[in-house]
Design a protein around this nucleic acid. Structure first.
Length: 152
DNA sequence: GCCAACGTTGGC
DNA sequence: GCCAACGTTGGC
């Protein structure tokens, strides 16, 4: 089982939104590196739900992968904002997984906290200029952030 | 809203 | 295959 960080702008799709829906396809990823991470996911993998472009940015809670990766149908839908004219039924460039709500952290873990924590400096999301919407998380990083988020 | 950082595109 | 131009992301 692997750990991931899923980034989303809460104005578009927040952890609250995922909670209301229960689960949702994580569609619209249009970056090859992020797509490759999606394609390596397995049901049961766990994820941080990160809120970007808000003040402060940070991790709001947890979600869980509940499907195998499959082709992102929005790439073939001309009406979707994620439509990709270079995708065809025979050549599906983009993938997604279904993600389920897991929990809200008692304490929102800010990007600042991640950056200043002595053992989290290597987290990819803290790197300057990082624009990947999905990044892998190391098990020790996962455990530290979990403690910060759940508080004690 | 600004703009640095980064990924993609396309002419050559 | 290079790289300038362009579009997007996301912290601030």
């Amino acid at each position: 089982m692997a750990y991931w960080l899923f980034k989303s702008e809460p104005d578009t799709f927040s952890l609250d939104d995922l909670q209301k829906l229960g689960h949702s396809p994580w569609d619209g990823v249009r970056n090859y590196q992020a797509r490759n991470y999606l394609r390596s996911m397995k049901p049961g993998d766990q994820g941080f739900f990160y809120h970007s472009r808000v003040d402060p940015p940070g991790i709001a809670g947890l979600c869980k992968v509940i499907s195998q990766p499959y082709a992102d149908p929005t790439a073939l839908d001309p009406k979707s904002k994620y439509f990709d004219e270079k995708s065809t039924p025979d050549n599906q460039r983009w993938s997604l997984v279904e993600v389920a709500y897991a929990e809200h952290f008692a304490h929102f873990v800010t990007l600042e906290q991640l950056r200043t924590h002595p053992n989290l400096g290597k987290m990819l999301v803290t790197r300057k200029g990082n624009r990947l919407s999905i990044t892998p998380v190391e098990p020790d990083e996962w455990n530290i952030v979990l403690q910060l988020g759940r508080g004690k």
